[in-house]
Design a protein around this nucleic acid. Structure first.
Length: 271
DNA sequence: CGGGCCACCTGGCGGC
DNA sequence: TGCCGCCAGGTGGCCC
């Protein structure tokens, strides 16, 4: 589930309870998620202080004072809860801090994973080596995208999901950004002109930024309930709205499959 | 290297 | 109510 805005929201939610705190306990309730937990993960991190939290693409990076970084990916169903009132099925990892906060990682499908790396070489782990630019950073501009897409014949929707081009966009925001830019998901990636790439970049930024803001408010709401983070509601324009009217033209939102994933779009509005 | 496809895993939902 | 097939927001690996 989680795309860049959800991951950013989780990172921001974890900061107050993790940054500057020391892990006094770390419990793994099983041997693996998608991959086995790193060797010595508990002994390496227990009693270590957390210096900083970062995000890269859909990954959360937790930097420890002993120069280790825990890289966390939430997969499709991973979430964190802060001081949940009761234990749940699929609570796989429990962090306890010196302030006695319990941070619980829950992941029913176990597509998530955790990797331990030296902080100085974390950019070199396989997940990051070929990762594309951050969509909200300065390196995403139409020249970059033109260069990355000029030899790509795949549909632009599929290209937006390619993390080696832009990091952090998933199925929902790919659909929403293309809708906002008025670009058909079926267009070949290398058929977009410069002005269309510029419009698409603006749309990506707007859609992600607005979702992050909505995540911020859900964070404040959820804090009052059970400390659960990662899943918040948006008002999507096209995602999961097949059969409903397009807000721009009134035509009917269509659902198709591209590269095995659902795509939702307005066949009239998106050219 | 590009592109297509499947596997990984559980749960929720609609149909019968 | 119960069973069954299908679907899900991601990624990695294998194949051509």
């Amino acid at each position: 589930m989680p795309e860049l805005p959800e991951v950013e929201t989780v990172k921001r939610g974890l900061e107050p309870v993790l940054k500057g705190k020391t892990l006094v306990d770390l419990i793994l309730n099983r041997e693996n998620l998608r991959f086995p937990f790193p060797d010595n993960m508990t002994t390496s991190l227990r009693h270590s202080k957390i210096q900083n939290l970062r995000r890269r693409g859909k990954y959360i990076l937790i930097d420890f004072a002993n120069d280790l970084t825990l890289v966390v990916h939430l997969g499709m169903s991973g979430s964190f809860a802060i001081n949940p009132s009761e234990a749940k099925k699929h609570d796989h990892v429990i962090f306890t801090t010196n302030e006695n906060d319990r941070i619980v990682y829950n992941d029913p499908r176990r597509f998530g994973y955790m990797i331990l790396s030296d902080t100085s070489t974390v950019e070199g782990i396989p997940s990051f080596v070929s990762m594309g630019v951050e969509p909200l950073g300065n390196h995403l501009h139409s020249d970059y995208l033109w260069d990355k897409l000029k030899a790509r014949t795949m549909p632009i929707k599929v290209a937006l999901l390619d993390q080696s081009i832009i990091a952090g966009i998933g199925n929902i925001y790919a659909c929403e950004a293309l809708y906002m830019a008025g670009i058909s998901p079926l267009r070949a990636a290398n058929s977009l002109q410069h002005f269309e790439l510029s419009n698409l970049i603006s749309a990506i930024r707007t859609v992600l930024q607005s979702a992050i803001e909505s995540g911020g408010s859900s964070l404040r709401d959820h804090r009052q309930t059970d400390g659960e983070m990662g899943y918040f509601q948006h008002n999507f324009k096209v995602y999961d709205r097949q059969g409903e009217p397009c807000p721009e033209t009134g035509c009917t939102i269509k659902k198709i499959t591209q590269s095995g994933r659902s795509t939702f779009y307005s066949p009239v509005w998106q050219k």
